[in-house]
């Protein structure tokens, strides 16, 4: 059984936001107005967080792209009263929209603030409606959503591998942000396969995770040279 995880090399990331846009297009995430964004009601499964590093006067701004961390010890799952969010056998944190009652406990309990509530019925300009991704459902108002590591791509990849009568290979399943990144800063794969690129990188001395001290055991690793206080 694979344990899917991601490694993001911050030394390669240029904060171009291509991953953010690719994610929105792939996952049918609606636009937001500046007003709603100001009220923090924007939905963006992948978000680039600006961060200051160092001490005055030696400051450096760094950017951290953040998808759902798919924690092995997920705080959001612990508070869901209806089992709409849970960790599946492959370590993915699932969100079942029809099961979600919109209580937002999980949103509030996520230390990374990476779960999003649908405050509105999503809408697109008419011209765009034919360009929505049929593999991803449109969420309704009043449910919580978040990055799924493009799980629908896994569904299809698995079916394709079965049809070709072979095992699923790592390169069959690649989330949209990974595919898009122009500097190849994002890696994705099975953390439990010691030969996989992600497993190797996660063991590197450059690797760290965000808010590691909380014990959430995120499956998104970051790489960076030098001092880092995630």
């Amino acid at each position: 059984m694979p344990r899917w995880g991601m490694v993001i090399d911050l030394d390669r990331c240029t904060a171009c936001q291509a991953c953010v846009v690719a994610c929105k297009a792939e996952n049918n995430i609606p636009f937001s107005s500046p007003k709603e964004a100001g009220r923090r009601r924007i939905i963006s499964w992948m978000r680039v967080l600006p961060m200051m590093e160092g001490e005055y006067p030696n400051l450096r701004e760094r950017f951290i792209p953040r998808p759902c961390m798919h924690c092995d010890n997920p705080p959001c799952v612990k508070v869901c009263p209806v089992g709409a969010t849970y960790k599946n056998k492959e370590g993915l944190i699932a969100q079942v929209y029809t099961q979600c009652i919109g209580c937002r406990y999980c949103t509030n309990n996520c230390p990374y603030t990476l779960k999003y509530f649908n405050w509105f019925r999503p809408e697109w300009p008419e011209e765009m409606e034919n360009y929505l991704n049929p593999d991803v459902s449109i969420r309704s108002k009043g449910v919580v959503e978040k990055c799924t590591f493009c799980h629908h791509r896994l569904q299809k990849a698995r079916e394709k591998a079965r049809a070709e009568n072979r095992e699923l290979k790592e390169e069959d399943y690649i989330p949209a942000c990974v595919q898009t990144c122009p500097t190849d800063a994002i890696y994705f794969g099975d953390l439990d396969d010691s030969k996989s690129k992600v497993a190797q990188l996660a063991r590197s001395p450059r690797a760290f995770r965000l808010l590691e001290e909380l014990g959430t055991e995120p499956k998104v690793y970051y790489l960076s040279e030098g001092e880092w206080h995630g």
Binding site: N88, T98, V136, Q155
Partner: peptide, 8 residues
């Protein structure tokens, strides 16, 4: 029978 095998 994982929920997200069917629900997406």
């Amino acid at each position: 029978n994982d929920c997200i095998a069917c629900h997406r």
